[in-house]
Design a protein around this nucleic acid. Structure first.
Lengths: 250, 250
DNA sequence: ACTTTTTCTTACCCGTGGGTAACATATCGG
DNA sequence: CCGATATGTTACCCACGGGTAAGAAAAAGT
C-alpha cells in the first residue's frame, strides 16, 4: 500500500551510470518480502492440511522453488511454524496496544477487544494462534509463545476486573469469564470458513453482543446496532506492522 | 492410572476340574477389557504429547507389551485414535439422550447440556473430541466423526430454537449462539488441567450460568447461586455406558 | 571483466516409526 | 496329551521427510 519507496536521501538523478543507491535498503527489503511470502504460503498449507502433513517440499513447490532454498530464510520447519504464529501474536498485540491507548470503561474496552479478536480469528495468521500446537516448537520458542498467550489472557482479565471496578461490569469471576469469552473467540479459528455463510464482520458484531451482554452491570439496553467503533484493522495479507521482530530463537 | 500390570482377570475358581463356565463370554470380555486399556493408555499419551509425537512403541510400553501386540486389537494407529474419539462421542451422545428423555424448557435443556458437556471436557475421552485432528483419520472414519459433530451442534441449536419458541430464551441467532456456547465449552478441553485450581464441577457450574444468562428471555434475576439442579453426572473414569460399539471402518 | 556474495538446485544422507513376517507361548476344546 | 486358536515376541522392512553438502546461477560490488 503506502510502503514508501526506498526514499534514498538526496536521490541522484538516475542518469549516473553506476549508482548503487538503494541496494542497501532495497536488498534487505526484497529478502523480507520473500521471507514473508514463505510464511503466507506456509500458514495456508499448515491450516489446510495440518503442520505434520505438510512437507517442506510442498511449501517450496507452491513458491516455485525447491526445499533447500527455504533454508536461506529459516533454520528449519519448526521456525517457520513459530514465525507464522508470531505474525498472529503481533496482530493481537497491536490490537491490544491500540485499545489500551484509547479510553473507555472496562466493558467498552472488552467489547473492542472481542470485536477485533473475533475478526482476527477469521484470518490465516490469526487462526494460527489457536490451530497450531505449541509442542511442535522448540522449548525456547514455545516458552515465548506461552508468554504471549499469558499476556493476552491477562488482558482479558484486566479489562473484566477493570470493568467490575468501574461498575460497567457486574460481579463475576474474571478468570472464568475470561476463559469463556476467549474460548468462544478462539473457537472461531476452528470453524470459520472463508466460503461459509458468515462474514467476519457478522461474526465479530454478533459475538461482541453475545459474549458481553451477560456481563453488563445493569443497563439492559440491547446496543444491538451500536458497533463499537472497532479499529477495523485492515490486515489482509499486508506486511507486518512496524514492530520489532521477535525472531525465532533456538 | 490403575494400569494393573499383572491384572489376572477374574480368576476362575479352578476347583472344578473341567468346568468351562465362562470362557464364551469371559473370553470376549477379557479381550474387550484389554482393548479398552489400550485406549486409555493411548488417549492419555495422545493428549499429553500430541498424536504425532506418540509412537506405538510408547503406547505398548506403557502397557508392558510390545508394539505388534497392539495389532491384535486395532488395525493401525489411526484406528486407535478414532476409537478414542468415539469413546468421547458416545459419552456426549448418552448425555444428549438422557436430556432428551427428560422434559423442561429449551433453556432448561440447554443448561443441562452445558453443564454436562463442560464436565465432559475435563475428562480424557471428552477432551479427545476437540483435541484430536480429524484429518489424521481415514476418510471413512473422518466422515463418521464429522457426522457426530454435526449432530451435537444440531442439538445445541435445537435446544436454542426450542427455547426461543417456548419463550424461555430471548430472540437471537441460534447458529451463532450455539457457536459461541460450544466454543467456550470446547475450549475447556484445551486449558483444563487436572492439577489446576479449578475443579470440573466449579467450571461446569460457572459456565452453566455464564453461558446462558445472556440468553434468558427476560427474568433478570441473577440466579447467581441457584445452581440449576444439573443432573450432576458422575462420570469420573467410569466405563463406557452400555452402548452399541461404533467400530472403526476403513 | 573479475571477483565476491547471495540465492537456489541437484543429489544425497539417515533417523524415525508404522507396519509386517515368522516364530514362540499360552489357552482352550476335546 | 494333542491340535487349534489367540496372543504375544523378536527381527526386519522401507517409505517418508527433515536436513545437509557441494556446486550452479544470478546479482552485486569493484
Amino acid at each position: 500500500m503506502d510502503s514508501a519507496p526506498p526514499a534514498p536521501p538526496s536521490s541522484p538523478p538516475s542518469s549516473a551510470p553506476s549508482s548503487p543507491w538503494l541496494p542497501f535498503e532495497s536488498r534487505r527489503r526484497a529478502r523480507d518480502e520473500k521471507r514473508e511470502a514463505v510464511l503466507r504460503a506456509a500458514v495456508q498449507l499448515f491450516l489446510e492440511q495440518g503442520y505434520h502433513r505438510v512437507t517442506l517440499n510442498e511449501v517450496a513447490e507452491r513458491l516455485n522453488i525447491t526445499k533447500p532454498a527455504l533454508y536461506n530464510y529459516f533454520r528449519g520447519k519448526d521456525e517457520i511454524l513459530f514465525e507464522c504464529w508470531s505474525m498472529g501474536a503481533e496482530l493481537v498485540d497491536s490490537v491490544i496496544t491500540e485499545i489500551n491507548a484509547g479510553g473507555g470503561s472496562g466493558l467498552a474496552k472488552l467489547r473492542k477487544l472481542v470485536h477485533a479478536y473475533a475478526a482476527l480469528m477469521a484470518t490465516d495468521f490469526g487462526a494460527s494462534l489457536v490451530r497450531f500446537d505449541l509442542r511442535d516448537l522448540t522449548e525456547r520458542n514455545a516458552a515465548v509463545a506461552r508468554d504471549a498467550k499469558k499476556r493476552i489472557d491477562a488482558t482479558f482479565r484486566r479489562y473484566i476486573t477493570g470493568g467490575i471496578a468501574d461498575g460497567s461490569i457486574g460481579p463475576c469471576d474474571p478468570k472464568l469469564a475470561a476463559f469463556a469469552i476467549a474460548g468462544a473467540l478462539n473457537w472461531i479459528g476452528h470453524w470459520y470458513r472463508r466460503d461459509g455463510a458468515l462474514s467476519p464482520t457478522e461474526i465479530a458484531d454478533e459475538f461482541t453482543v453475545r459474549l458481553t451482554e451477560g456481563l453488563a452491570a445493569e443497563s439492559r439496553q440491547q446496543m444491538t446496532k451500536k458497533t463499537p467503533r472497532a479499529p477495523q484493522r485492515r490486515d489482509s495479507g499486508r506486511k507486518t506492522p512496524g514492530k520489532k521482530r521477535t525472531g525465532a530463537t533456538r
